[in-house]
Design a protein around this nucleic acid. Structure first.
Length: 976
DNA sequence: GTGGTCTCCTA
DNA sequence: GTAGGAGACCACA
């Protein structure tokens, strides 16, 4: 760049928001894709370029670039954690447009500039400085006051929406101060949008007046005592520090370490066909025509660009690089030479599914990486591709106590490699022999891979990536950003089949991957993976990564095609790391307490056993329902027997309780025996086996994609079913403890599902009751039985409570009758009465069933889908079951989504509050368990409550408040 | 050893 | 009536 050259810097991010709000909404005709901001942006750019090129009035750009924010995390958050903290999430229909606007920029053949850790404004400041220093001029296309500090002799601004130039006089006219004082002015006034504090009570007018009087901020703060107005003087003295911090927040950094130089910004003549291809994809007909006229290109021969619209959502998160890379790897618009002809996400997704099986699988084609040089070559290839599928092999299923055996990588279909790291010879002692020759050392390999695995510009794809994430974290390697084919499939197809690698591969690739058993064998002689020959391991491991990569290529575009990008981006992808950290933390369990309880239960059980044998007159296996049934209903001939599905006598607790109520001794004893033996075997005896020998804590595993509704599930051990209902059972909970000097905090949503129901079905009485904080079951009883809420008899309330729960479960007379032990006719009458009082509930149920029948799925308030393909079954039982599940899913699922949202935000909120050491450990559907230092507890509880109670916002503004009860104690029993 | 059944623990 | 996981037993391989 030289004297006389002129650089145009377009504030892309600023324009997006402005265009979105200022212009009428616009959607693409063929599929409803929101494109209003994209359209505004394209028209603005086009006009800008045309005006500049065609007129001799004004300035003509020689250099041109469009600048974007990378993400909201910048150095400013470090100076002031609350910076932009109150900024709400962008509107749902704007999110996909972020990526599209970047694509638009590229279609215009203009540089698309962004940089991690910097806002667009900083990059603009940097390039404006560079232009100035080179002797040229710069025009900033924006009207943002934050940029006005840059205006000067060589730098001006241009507001494209008002067609107005902003130079020094305009700044003075608008703000009362010259550009160089804008920083001080903003430091005083603050900015509520960005959460820059400033000084309370000082607006632009006062600030300008003060700066006029004192010259600059430092002088003002130093001589604040001279200010006459009492309130103002006190405010300034008191908040001087805030003003200083604010100054650092608003001061733009003009020395950002930018990659592209001004030479990269030289403006080229328009590439008509490229731009027309994009306009066609967006279905911008008039712009297509204008571009064609101006460039002389013939639009009829130009195919629409293929667009990876899901990259748009990614581009909004902390992983813009990955979004771009993803588009590249998918053969998207960053490689326009690959002959794209698919205009809509749906078309692209369809094409991908078609192509999935096109490249045959060749297990013998996978490479084994045996030296660092080869590994480096694969790493380079992964960087070039921008996306790499990974799969880890290890010595244990449990990532918390597994050693790495190997890692496989895939960068393109069929292009995969296996890096063996911990393979051992089979001979030697029981523990196996030493490491097999010809393996890269673990340390060297991880050192080489770590930068790739944490490169924000390279997306790491995996099937159930939380497992690999955690395993690698245990080996000191961070993996980010990630995509998970299992979770993508779950968002798309929950309820339509399994999300395992095998199932997905067969469903989408028509290929059955090699079963593990094929190389390890099975049974007594089964090999541990680390003793498998490397030559045998490579085809298996390489295939794992290859399959994951191909699945990703097929499934990812479907998110955009089905409108499920935000479900994945907000409720699934961020949870991988959140849950991974929870699993890694684990929870302390007191072995002694469990051991003592086990002894107690053991004695109780033995005593009851003897009594049972005596009463029964013989010894038998009490734990065998078959033998027990024979004793009770055969030998003793008790009445009231019922059969199970397979024709056996039922010995369920319900039956035994009924018999006990008739005065029979034995059934009571069986129930008691079952209780203690259950507690002993499932809890006191099993839990100690899960205590990790290294961490001395229990690390459960949460499945993110195993339920049809969006709930998590917990296993090995299941910490979501720790007893609470009985006195004896609760004792188990006292064994879950905080470390010394710490406490457990339990925070649980009160009646979240009924609140969700009140919101979804919009029931006035329920809304009122929750707003007033009255007893919801008593209120229901009052409505149904025409009794005052005050002094509601417990039994009447109990019935209402059962009905409320029944509603959530998709009520049936049969079920309610069972629950309340009343005749089915009576239950039917209750339900009828309930629907009379709450007709909105019946409407909701009918509506939901109808929706499920029509579309095959139902949705939560956040758009998560649960599929019920069998709701049209001709089997009435089957059908009714699916209907109840479909009625329940939006309620249970919305509640699950809410707590997911809370969990995604929790760690950040705690860190922002200076509570980074408060650790979220467990989730039990409507409850979160934390561990915190005693000193942090009182500060943590309000933060936790705040995050949980506001978790639905801003996506959904609930019609009823969410209420969270939280408490801290030394153990889980007392905390709950 | 594996898988189905029954039972019971949670929200 | 919804959603889960797990232990014990038992028949089958």
């Amino acid at each position: 760049m030289k004297k006389g050259d002129h650089l145009f810097l377009v504030d892309g991010s600023g324009y997006i928001f402005r265009a979105y709000h200022a212009l009428p909404p616009l959607t693409r005709k063929s599929d409803g894709l929101p494109v209003g901001a994209v359209s505004g942006f394209c028209n603005m750019l086009w006009k800008l370029l045309q005006d500049a090129r065609n007129t001799d009035v004004g300035v003509t750009p020689t250099h041109f670039a469009v600048i974007f924010d990378y993400s909201s995390k910048t150095f400013r958050s470090e100076i002031f954690p609350e910076y932009k903290a109150n900024r709400s999430e962008p509107p749902e229909d704007l999110v996909p447009q972020f990526g599209l606007i970047r694509e638009a920029t590229r279609a215009f053949d203009l540089p698309c500039i962004e940089l991690e850790g910097y806002e667009a404004d900083d990059l603009i400041a940097t390039y404006a400085r560079l232009a100035r220093e080179a002797g040229g001029d710069a025009t900033i296309v924006s009207s943002d006051k934050d940029l006005m500090q840059l205006v000067g002799d060589a730098v001006s601004m241009y507001d494209p929406m008002k067609d107005r130039e902003i130079r020094v006089p305009e700044v003075i006219e608008k703000w009362g101060v010259p550009p160089e004082k804008m920083i001080d002015l903003q430091a005083l006034t603050g900015d509520s949008v960005d959460n820059v504090p400033g000084i309370p009570g000082i607006g632009p007018k006062t600030a300008a007046q003060l700066l006029e009087e004192f010259g600059d901020l430092d002088t003002l703060l130093a001589r604040a005592g001279e200010i006459k107005q009492n309130k103002r003087r006190e405010n300034i003295i008191e908040n001087a520090d805030k003003a200083r911090i604010s100054r650092e927040l608003v001061r733009l950094k003009d020395d950002a370490p930018v990659v592209e130089g001004l030479a990269d910004f030289v403006l080229r003549p328009p590439d008509g066909p490229k731009l027309i291809a994009f306009c066609k994809a967006m279905e911008f007909s008039s712009l297509t025509r204008r571009v064609a006229e101006a460039t002389g290109a013939d639009p009829s021969g130009i195919a629409a660009t293929a667009l990876e619209i899901e990259a748009g959502a990614a581009a909004h998160g902390p992983d813009v690089g990955a979004g771009k890379a993803a588009a590249k790897a998918l053969g998207g618009p960053t490689r326009p030479d690959t002959g794209n002809v698919y205009a809509t996400p749906a078309e692209l997704a369809g094409k991908r599914a078609e192509m999935a099986g096109a490249i045959p699988f060749d297990r013998s084609g996978y490479e084994t990486i045996v030296d660092i040089k080869t590994l480096d070559a694969w790493i380079a290839e992964a960087r070039e591709a921008g996306v790499v599928a990974i799969d880890t092999e290890s010595t244990s299923i449990d990532p918390m106590q597994a050693d790495l055996t190997g890692i496989s990588l895939a960068v393109a279909p069929g292009r995969a490699a296996y890096l063996p790291l911990g393979h051992k010879s089979r001979d030697g002692d029981l523990l196996g022999g030493g490491l097999v020759e010809g393996q890269v050392s673990l340390r060297a390999a991880l050192d080489a891979l770590a930068p790739l695995f944490s490169d924000p510009g390279v997306l790491k794809v995996g099937q159930n990536i939380k497992h690999d994430w955690l395993l690698l974290l245990q080996h000191g390697v961070a993996v980010t950003p990630v995509d998970d084919t299992m979770l993508i499939s779950y968002v798309l197809d929950a309820g339509l089949g399994a999300q395992g690698l095998e199932a997905l591969s067969e469903r989408w690739l028509g290929h059955a991957p090699m079963p593990l058993k094929e190389i390890t064998g099975s049974g007594r002689n089964q090999l541990r993976f680390e003793t498998v020959e490397i030559a045998d391991a490579t085809p298996y491991a390489g295939e794992g990564a290859d399959v994951a990569l191909r699945l990703w290529q097929v499934l990812k575009p479907r998110l955009a095609a089905d409108g499920l990008v935000s479900v994945y981006e907000r409720l699934e992808r961020p949870l991988v790391e959140v849950i991974g950290r929870m699993e890694q933390r684990g929870i302390a369990v007191d072995r002694q307490i469990l051991s003592r309880l086990s002894g107690d239960f053991s004695q109780t059980a033995a005593a009851i056993e003897e009594e049972i044998y005596e009463t029964a007159g013989e010894r038998f296996n009490i734990g065998s329902p078959k033998q027990l049934g024979d004793i009770l209903f055969g030998k003793m001939g008790l009445s009231g027997a019922r059969k199970t599905a397979t024709g056996q006598w039922s010995t369920s607790a319900q039956i035994l309780e009924d018999l006990a109520a008739e005065g029979h001794e034995l059934p009571r004893k069986i129930v008691d025996w079952r209780q203690v033996t259950k507690l002993k075997s499932t809890y006191t005896d099993a839990l100690p086996g899960y205590i990790n020998p290294e961490t001395k804590r229990v690390h459960t595993s949460y499945a993110l994609a195993s339920t049809s509704t969006g709930r998590l599930s917990s296993s090995e051990p299941n910490l979501q079913n720790i007893p609470i209902r009985t006195v004896e059972g609760r004792k188990i909970r006292t064994a879950f403890i905080a470390e010394p000097g710490n406490r457990l905090i339990s925070a649980d949503y009160s009646q979240i599902e009924l609140r969700v129901l009140a919101h979804i079905a919009d029931i006035p009485q329920l809304r009122q009751a929750f707003a007033d904080g009255v007893d919801i079951h008593a209120m229901t009883a009052s409505e149904m039985f025409n009794m005052p809420v005050e002094d509601m008899p417990p039994d009447v309330r109990r019935r209402a409570k059962a009905i409320n729960f029944g509603i959530i479960y998709g009520i049936s007379a049969f079920g309610l009758a069972n629950q309340l032990s009343i005749p089915r006719e009576e239950a039917s009458a209750y339900i009828k009465k309930y629907f009379e009082r709450f007709p909105g509930i019946r409407d909701y149920m009918d509506r939901t069933k109808e929706h499920a029948r029509e579309k095959g799925y139902v949705e939560t308030i956040f758009g998560r889908r649960a599929h019920y393909p069998e709701i049209r079954s001709s089997n009435p039982h089957h059908r009714a079951f699916n209907e109840r599940a479909a009625i329940n899913a939006p309620i249970q699922g919305s509640a699950a989504d809410i707590i997911r949202r809370a969990m995604v935000r929790m760690d950040g909120a705690l860190a922002d509050a200076g509570l980074a050491e408060v650790r979220m450990l467990l989730q039990v559907h409507d409850e979160l368990i934390f561990e915190a230092r005693e000193a942090d507890v009182d500060k943590a509880i309000p933060v936790i409550r705040e995050v949980m109670e506001n978790a639905a916002m801003p996506a959904i503004s609930m019609a009823v408040p969410l209420q969270v009860d939280a408490r801290a104690a030394d153990n889980w029993d007392e905390a709950h």
